[in-house]
Amino acid sequence: MFELRLVQGSLLKKVLESIKDLVNDANFDCSSTGFSLQAMDSSHVALVALLLRSEGFEHYRCDRNLTMGMNLANMAKMLKCAGNDDIITIKADDGTDTVTFMFESPSQDKISDFEMKLMDIDSEHLGIPEAEYEAIIRMPSAEFARICRDLSSIGDTVVISVTKEGVRFSARGDIGAANIVCRQNATVDKPEDATIIEMQEPVTLTFALRYMNSFTKATPLAEQVTISMSSDLPVVVEYKVAGMGYIRYYLAPKIEE
């Protein structure tokens, strides 16, 4: 028997909105430590890793490890039927091939039950080593989303370059070129507005903007985004899920030919 109950159901709604455009079908891994997922997009260029720890739920029961294969678009459709203030419960009985989503309104005067068939998806997990990154940028998530959106109107590729001056986002295309430089800015009154750059080494990497824009769908989850870079590794774009865990996106770089 597996059951989780999340009082702040809106978090789960936002999580699905953050991943459903990148990955079609994925396995949710349920264990005593929590509710997680790791899945690559169809081209194996990007990967999303989700972790919601069990202690972050109001109620969490997982009698034995369980993998639930789901079509994320269908799951998102069902979660869209939950109100932003609803309590969301997900449960699956052992040996059944369905999962139930239950939505309770705050005043408990409306209870909804949605049942979805589970899928058999062969899980393709990658081993992602913990790494020391040469540069780590923490900045307002809305700012990062704005930069990715603006640069994608100039070109389809962004060059991210971290130096001691700050972080530079560059794009070029048929109509011209654009450079956006963000400097370290720790002296703000609200910590969520700060831009903090930890740089061990200067690093420059090139990425496809369409994946970066897909990652920024997670912006509503967190005020800040962390971008970790190293010369010979995929970039990690991480959004914390308030007090529960995170959504991490990994993106393979492009190289100049």
């Binding site: 690559m40 081209s43 194996h44 260029v45 990007a46 990967l47 393709e124 997990h125 990658l126 081993g127 992602i128 080593p129 590729t157 090139t206 496809a208 010979d232 590794l233 995929p234 990994y250 393979a252 770089p253 492009k254 190289i255 100049e256 030919e257």
Partner: peptide, 14 residues
């Protein structure tokens, strides 16, 4: 011209 790399070139399959 930029060549898009893929994640399995960096991370090993479990």
């Amino acid at each position: 011209y930029t060549l898009q790399l893929h994640l399995p070139e960096f991370f090993v399959w479990k």
